[in-house]
Amino acid sequence: MTAPITLGLVGLGTIARNQHLPSLAETPALALVAIASRNAALDDLPAYHDIHEMLAAEPGLQAVSLCTPPQGRFEQAVAAIRAGRHVMLEKPPGASVSEVTALAHLAQENGVTLFATWHSREAAAVEEARRRLAEAQVRRVQITWKEDVRHWHPGQEWIWQPGGLGVFDPGINALSVLTRILPDAVHPVAATLEVPANRQSPIAAQMDMVTSSGAPVRAEFDWRQTGPQTWDILVETDGSEILLRLGGAELHVDGVQVSTSVDLEYRRLYARFAELVASGQSEVDLSPLQLVADAFLLGERRTVEAFHW
């Protein structure tokens, strides 16, 4: 049997503990051997203050998974790539499109794998929706992605800072699914960004897009929704009406639920990372991040009520 790929995890916040750690534990092709975090550690693994300490102390380390805020991740990825380690990036893959493009070139030059992940694409019903839409004529798309920032990002100031994306931090998940399931490319034509008076990034946004075939796509993102959360993508076609609910966990066709499954998103991502490393390939699709960047370029900024935790 082939020995597992040794991996270090950088960042040990909520998403790392809830998703990355259990998923790594169920991925035989990878072996978690070290942690790098400024403020946290695990009892059974070596822990380092930052990625530089980890890379210096763990010469046998083959890969790194970066689960840190996008601001500052470029320098971490560069350090790992130049040290000859394969790199997996949590979404969004960086604070800008150009910096991730630079990472892709650097990974190719150094002969290592770079994997820019989009976990929502691995939701249970996404591929079935993609299959059903492959030959369809899309008439209209409506994205409704509304959740409670206080529940999902309690006290996390980085999300409001430049590069943190604001409401596009969850909104980019919808855009990653959109760019996976539609048979045509899509581009924004207008956007509105609702920015709290005391913040730098939007708490809500609306985007109007169009497919290359001319179908309108409307997206509504909001971080102020309490109670039940909404993560829906509705696609009207010349035949069936396709609805992905709960972030892609459920598929409804013409009002009838046809599929659902358990959450295996991050397990699939780590399995794919192992495959890419084994085959010497990289996978860097920047289309969701490009749509967000375009929204900021095209967006009309509107100041709204100040946000306080």
Rank of each mutant, 00 (worst) to 15 (best):
Q108E: 14
A134H: 09
A249M: 14
R218D: 01
P22E: 06
F115Y: 15
V292S: 04
M88C: 12
K146T: 14
E58Q: 15
I51A: 04
D263K: 11
D294S: 13
A249F: 13
A293L: 03
C67Y: 08
A25Q: 13
R131A: 11
V10H: 08
A215G: 00
L234W: 04
R272H: 15
L297Q: 12
I51K: 08
A104M: 12
L175T: 05
Q62I: 08
R180E: 14
G247E: 04
V186C: 00
L114N: 01
E250G: 03
V258A: 00
Q137P: 00
F115R: 03
I81Q: 01
I35T: 03
V33G: 00
A125W: 13
F221Y: 11
L297H: 11
A116C: 00
L106A: 10
A215Q: 02
E127A: 12
L114M: 05
A31V: 04
E236K: 02
T2E: 13
L55M: 08
E128G: 01
V149D: 07
N18C: 09
H20F: 14
R73H: 10
D169I: 12
D285Q: 03
L291G: 04
T230P: 00
V138C: 01
G84T: 00
S282L: 09
V100K: 05
G299A: 07
D254K: 00
Y266R: 09
A95Q: 12
L21G: 06
V304I: 14
A215N: 01
V10Y: 11
N198C: 07
P216Q: 03
H252I: 12
V167P: 03
D238H: 10
V277E: 10
E99L: 12
R38T: 07
A190T: 04
D169V: 13
V87Q: 05
A123K: 07
A83I: 04
E147C: 12
R224A: 09
E236V: 05
A63E: 11
E99I: 04
V78R: 14
A95E: 11
F115Q: 00
A204V: 05
E122F: 14
M88E: 06
Q161G: 01
T303K: 01
Q62G: 14
Q200L: 13
A40H: 14
L269I: 15
G280E: 11
G11N: 09
Q19G: 06
V138N: 02
W231G: 03
S213C: 08
S120C: 04
T237F: 05
T101H: 10
P216N: 02
A124F: 15
P46L: 09
G163Y: 09
W145C: 00
E275A: 13
H153L: 14
G155H: 12
Q76D: 12
V100P: 05
V258I: 10
D222G: 05
E26G: 08
L55W: 07
A116M: 02
H119Q: 15
V138D: 02
Q137E: 15
P228L: 05
A79Y: 08
G227Y: 10
Q142N: 10
